[in-house]
Nucleic acid binder design. Sequence first.
DNA 1: GTTCATGGACTACACGTGTAAGCCAATACG
DNA 2: CGTATTGGCTTACACGTGTAGTCCATGAAC
Lengths: 133, 133
Amino acid sequence: MNAQVKVPRISETEWEVMRAVWAGHPATAGEIIERLTAADPTWHPKTAKTLLARLVRKGALDYEAQGRRYVYEPLVSERQCVAAASESFLERVFGGSLKPMLAHFVESRRLSREEMDELRALLENGLSKGKRP
Amino acid sequence: MNAQVKVPRISETEWEVMRAVWAGHPATAGEIIERLTAADPTWHPKTAKTLLARLVRKGALDYEAQGRRYVYEPLVSERQCVAAASESFLERVFGGSLKPMLAHFVESRRLSREEMDELRALLENGLSKGKRP
DNA sequence: GTTCATGGACTACACGTGTAAGCCAATACG
DNA sequence: CGTATTGGCTTACACGTGTAGTCCATGAAC
């Protein structure tokens, strides 16, 4: 189940579209556009359509004709894309060093008491349990 | 010292150049190119020069003529750029939610016991010392 | 059935980015 | 001093990206 498919490069704006698709699929262009405009009313339907087409061409999405309209489906999982983007970011901005990166985030943003606790718990578990659901 | 200067958008490749500059400045183009090729021999001097010029135009670097050559100096600090890039990444990939992001990294990469401890310490301090002006 | 609206395909276009080459002036070398 | 070299300035060019508009077919509304 881990075919390690090559994740295409997803641009900034394309990420928004992908997230709209991941939010629930299969989904028609209309539904996706609805989600996009809900989050940000400045989205232009035509723009969204162009992005959808590009994502299909890139191999990030697939579609299936359903009558006169398409239903889109992701070909790459959010996990995969998140992993790829994170890796790239880590490399580019922190030269690949994880600790400075984590330090930066923990420092830069105030975490609530709860978040800290949860994160701490995550640290504990990550070591002892290392299990992947 | 915190003029909060607008950080220009630094592209992937430009990051490499900036890091070479941050590594020690002022530095001549020659020195910078040396550092770049040291890290990655495929760097072409002309390409590096183009990038330097672009970074100057963008306002990320400044230079001062020193005889027939320039010495470059960053106009934006690594801290600033790291912060900006991190913010953008966090927004794009994790919708701005810090915790899932941290969770992802803690999960995805195996941290050594020491790193975990350090990170945990960081969490403790972050809270107890939370000096927020 | 004719018309309008909806949805997809194709086209447009400027700016960013990666990757250099060509040109020109000053300097170092002989 | 003349020449080769070095370093900067200008130009090139293809592909990616953000942002749409136009064209065309099909289904919905009358």
